[in-house]
């Protein structure tokens, strides 16, 4: 039976938070989420989060953009209407390739950048009018919050967190 209770432990220093995360991980307790007002270096590694694959997606989006640019320049300039424009050699795509490089470069960057950002938004579930999910407004200003689910071990977790320097420990019902 899945518990609906979670413990919210508040910290007011990122160094203390890092030590607390390590202490909780050492007890093999699951950390549901950590809310921080700013990026804390090394937090993802301390929590054991898998590395992001966003860069890999960007690489493939870039290749997509490059392919699109090659297809587009080839279709428009060589296949569809190969005009003589200022003596540029439009006999084949290769003979006029240098002229297409700027657009190839820009489209590669454009696809890689924009599609990666959109991927980030989708994976992070961020969009306009999205309801904010922070459990306590102080976590956007000067407090750090660690959320741990409770499985009939409330007292045990509370005692552990109290030792880690938490400034406030609340047990809340998760809706």
């Amino acid at each position: 039976m899945e518990s609906s209770k979670v413990i919210h432990a508040f910290y007011n220093d990122d160094e203390v938070l890092m030590d607390a995360v390590k202490a909780v991980k050492a007890e093999h307790l699951h950390i549901e989420e950590v809310f921080c007002p700013f990026p804390v270096h090394g937090l993802d590694k301390a929590m054991g989060l898998a590395p992001t694959r966003l860069a890999i997606t960007a690489f493939f989006y870039g290749i997509t953009g490059l392919s699109f640019a090659i297809w587009m320049t080839n279709y428009m300039m060589i296949q569809d209407w190969p005009q003589d424009i200022g003596g540029k050699p439009n006999f084949s795509w290769w003979t006029n390739m240098p002229a297409f490089v700027p657009i190839m470069f820009e489209l590669t960057v454009f696809f890689a950048a924009h599609l990666m950002v959109i991927t980030f938004y989708m994976r992070s579930r961020i969009w306009p009018f999205k309801e904010a999910e922070n459990p306590d407004p102080r976590t956007t200003d000067d407090h750090f919050l660690m959320e741990i689910p409770v499985n009939n071990n409330e007292a045990e977790i509370t005692a552990l967190l109290a030792k880690t320097g938490a400034v406030e420990i609340n047990v809340v019902d998760k809706h």
């Binding site: 890092m18 390590k22 270096h41 090394g42 590694k45 301390a46 054991g48 590395p51």
Partner: peptide
């Protein structure tokens, strides 16, 4: 550099 693991080092050494 933050995101590379040095050889002979575990993730516990990261800070």
């Amino acid at each position: 550099y933050y995101n590379i693991e040095h050889r002979g080092e575990s993730s516990g050494d990261h800070h």
